[in-house]
Simulated assay, not measured.
Amino acid sequence: MQHTVSLKTLIIASVSSTVVAAIALVTLILPAEYNIDPTGIGHKLGLTSIAIAAETDAQPSQSPTGNKGTDEFQIIEVIVPAGRGVEYKFAMPQHAKMTYEWLTEGESLYFDLHGEPEGDTTGYFESYTIATSNEMKGSFTAPFAGSHGWYWKNKTDNPIALQLLVKGEYEVIGLKK
């Protein structure tokens, strides 16, 4: 007995397998391999941490205080206490560039990415981004020499850990007291 497959069945099977492959690519492979997560599902499943861990394993670890930036990502852990805010800063010369990404395990933080000019005693600062989110990635060029970084505020009753990945032209100042 010979079975024949109709053209319609072949087309349906081909289209179905292409759709399944595309879904797997976007939701599983890109987040796990490349830390690209357009749907957010990879982060919820913990797959983006696989890509970050792979990057970490491939790079030498660096101490978060006093190191100059490099072409490799430096990974910094920051704890934002319950109901409080912290500031983490980098010294950067004018026109220096920094690429960054920070993320929590899902909890959102109010944040202000800003800079303060070197030597200024007036309390002036310039905000670049103010929002509430559980992650952010991007890059910026320092418009002036000084300290640049984030203020994060935790409005919950529990401490929130965040992972900050940075690379570029900077020197770590660290947590601002």
Rank of each mutant, 00 (worst) to 15 (best):
T141L: 11
Y124T: 11
D157Y: 00
A96C: 05
Q2W: 04
V20D: 11
Q59C: 04
D71S: 10
Q94N: 04
H43T: 12
K177T: 07
V15K: 02
G40W: 02
W102Y: 03
L164A: 09
I76W: 01
I41A: 09
V166A: 08
D157Q: 03
L109V: 03
A91L: 05
V5W: 15
D112Q: 10
T39P: 10
Q163E: 12
E33A: 14
E126T: 03
I130Y: 08
T121D: 11
N35C: 03
P64S: 07
A96D: 10
G149R: 02
K177D: 10
K176W: 14
W152H: 06
E55N: 06
G119E: 01
K97D: 02
G149A: 09
T141Y: 03
P159R: 05
E171N: 07
F125T: 06
Q2N: 10
L10N: 10
Q163H: 06
A96E: 04
E116N: 04
D112T: 02
E55F: 00
L25Y: 12
T56I: 15
D37A: 06
K44F: 02
M92R: 11
S14R: 04
A21G: 13
Y110T: 06
V26Q: 13
L175S: 10
P159I: 03
Y124W: 06
V78M: 06
G106N: 04
P143I: 01
G138M: 09
G106L: 01
S6C: 00
G119K: 05
D112V: 04
A54L: 11
H3V: 15
G123Q: 05
V166E: 04
T141K: 15
Y128V: 13
A51W: 08
S14L: 10
T104L: 03
Q62M: 09
D37K: 09
E107Y: 05
K167G: 00
K8Q: 11
H114E: 05
K176G: 01
K8Y: 01
L109N: 02
M98P: 02
T4Q: 11
G146V: 07
V5I: 15
K44Q: 12
I75V: 13
W152T: 00
K89N: 09
H3E: 14
Y110G: 08
H114S: 04
L45Y: 11
T39W: 08
K8G: 04
I52A: 14
T70S: 14
L45Q: 10
E169H: 01
A54E: 14
A53M: 09
D57G: 07
